[in-house]
Simulated scan of single mutants.
Amino acid sequence: MTERASGTGACPICGKPAATEYRPFCSKRCADVDLSRWLGGVYRVETEESPDAPKKDED
């Protein structure tokens, strides 16, 4: 099995071994830190769209 498939690996926040319950994190705290970073805009997915581009309606 690979690290990802087995659930063993390092927590991406602190580097401790991942816990099955919070995979890929080691704890709820590290999972919450990661969520906070996403919500705060620290992480983002790059796109070709400009922030001022009009949004298309999806039907």
Rank of each mutant, 00 (worst) to 15 (best):
T20H: 04
A10S: 15
R37N: 14
E3N: 11
G41P: 12
S27Y: 04
K56Q: 14
L35P: 01
T8N: 13
D52S: 15
C11L: 06
G40H: 02
G7Q: 04
R4P: 02
P24W: 06
P24Q: 08
R29V: 10
A18F: 03
A10C: 10
A10D: 14
G40D: 06
E48H: 11
D57E: 14
A10Q: 15
E3H: 05
C11D: 10
A10P: 06
D34E: 13
V42D: 11
A31V: 04
Y43K: 05
Y43G: 09
A18T: 12
D52R: 11
G7T: 06
E46R: 12
E49W: 12
T2A: 11
A5V: 11
V42R: 11
S27L: 05
T20E: 05
C26N: 00
G15E: 10
C30G: 02
R37C: 10
R44W: 05
R23G: 02
C14I: 10
D57N: 07
W38H: 12
Y22L: 01
D57Y: 01
Y43Q: 08
G15C: 10
L39N: 06
G15T: 08
T20Y: 02
E21I: 04
Y43A: 10
Y22G: 01
E49Y: 13
D52E: 15
V42K: 12
A53F: 08
R29K: 15
D57K: 06
R37S: 08
K56A: 13
K16A: 15
K16Y: 12
T2S: 13
E21V: 07
W38C: 08
G41L: 03
D59Y: 01
R23A: 12
D34R: 03
A10N: 14
R4I: 15
K56I: 13
R37T: 01
D57I: 05
L35T: 13
A10M: 11
P17F: 01
G40Q: 03
I13D: 06
D34I: 01
P17D: 05
D59W: 03
A53V: 08
S50H: 02
L35S: 09
D34S: 15
K55I: 06
G15N: 07
M1K: 10
R4Y: 13
A31W: 00
R44Y: 10
D52V: 10
C30I: 02
C11K: 00
A19M: 00
K56F: 03
E46A: 12
P17S: 08
W38A: 07
L39E: 01
T47V: 07
G7S: 06
T2P: 12
P12Q: 14
